[in-house]
Design a protein around this nucleic acid. Structure first.
Lengths: 224, 224
DNA sequence: CATAATTGCTACCAAGCAGTATAAACAAAG
DNA sequence: CTTTGTTTATACTGCTTGGTAGCAATTATG
């Protein structure tokens, strides 16, 4: 990402003819595409075999390229892991933020949040699972950044619970602690769901909604 | 464990004087102790750095012994991992079974189950976390045995939920699926709890009880 | 067609580590 | 004090793998 930004730098572009600019842009798109493909295959291997047990040679083979090819798009193995973990948590966070931008009562918003985040987690299971499992393999600085994203997620979720508590919709005695249980329940989906297994993605998402609603539901029971 | 049983074999013992028998028994206890110590230190490293990233040399160093020492008590690194994973799930299963042996209504039993299992998971976090994280590193045969224990756990939990459903204490539309959410919530503790962190073990256990109760609670609300 | 630049590959290295062959140290028994 | 068996360490091997130096092939440019 940084490299990419550098080479499409404004200073470079301004004094070059249109043609060169267009060519440079296309090249950057191709570079971005190659990076995405490498990341995608790497995530398959990290998910199936774990980070340490995965060799970059095997990733390269799967892409029909060689190891130095990968090294010309990523600085090292750790950068691959970081981008995968980052993707895992960032996708969830974005889904949360988009859901929160939909107007509605706290209960309505919570339902949308759980539905969308659960779907995103299932669709991007590889990234989320690697993030949950391999955090310990990240460099301290990278791990800090990831934890920060996670913290933002939990904080925004806690704010929603707090809102529902104030409005009387939810019965939670400690919103920020409850938020952790809810986000744990969502994370658990990535570790447990198996495509083509006993239960469909839709069933799992609906179950998750039900479970979370019950977790925050006041003693009187839920309303329609 | 197997080796140990072999060397205290009845055939060996019967035709030997009392003294030798006693000496052999003591020796076996010492062997068992050494195995436990190795496992304990290994679990620390596997928990902190992951299975693949842990070297047996570092485990040996921590114990002030050498690598061949470990190899004279365990056949290879994989056997260590298997015993750690096995401990992680077996402890939880035993806690569940003991809790289920306490007489009471389904609600009462469920509360005891969650309390005891949550405590066991916190106390043995290293073993449980390694089991959840490193299952993919196990040999297929070992992985199968572990999954069987997990399945027994989920099945027994589902049976309890089924009982509560029949008696009208619980509102669960699909006991075996709900059991997975409950056992996921419990597993999540191992991945998330941090000793000396923001919340005490007791708070976490009490929270877990509350969350599970709400998850199965009928719409009318909970009774005392 | 020649020249320059970019892109990917071949071939390699250094390090780390699981696992072992063998010897030393120690203990038990006579 | 020797003999015999057991326990642990020294010292090594063979292999894997992250990472790189330098070359070949391809493409763009004049």
């Amino acid at each position: 990402m940084h490299k990419l930004a550098d080479s499409t730098d404004a200073a470079d572009m301004m004094d070059k003819p249109k043609k060169k600019r267009a060519a440079a842009q296309l090249k950057d798109e191709i570079t971005a595409y190659k990076r995405r493909r490498i990341l995608e295959e790497a995530s398959h291997f990290f998910f199936a075999n774990g980070y340490e047990a995965t060799t970059l040679d095997s990733v390269a083979e799967q892409l029909n390229v060689t190891k130095p090819f990968i090294y010309s798009y990523y600085k090292n193995k750790g950068e691959l892991l970081y981008e995968i973990c980052q993707t895992g948590i960032q996708l969830s966070l974005t889904a949360l933020e988009e859901a929160l931008s939909v107007e509605g009562t706290a209960s309505e918003q919570l339902k949308i949040v759980v539905e969308r985040v659960a779907r995103i987690i299932i669709e991007n299971q590889r990234y989320v699972t690697v993030y949950l499992r391999e955090e310990k393999c990240l460099l301290p600085e990278d791990a800090r950044r990831i934890r920060e994203l996670r913290h933002t997620f939990d904080t925004k979720l806690a704010a929603l619970l707090e809102r529902g508590k104030r409005s009387g919709e939810f019965d939670v005695q400690h919103p920020s602690r409850t938020a952790i249980w809810v986000s744990g329940l969502l994370s658990w989906i990535a570790l447990w769901y198996h495509e083509g297994g006993r239960w469909s993605a839709t069933e799992v998402v609906m179950d998750a909604i039900t479970m979370v609603q019950k977790m925050v539901q006041p003693a009187g029971g839920a309303r329609a």
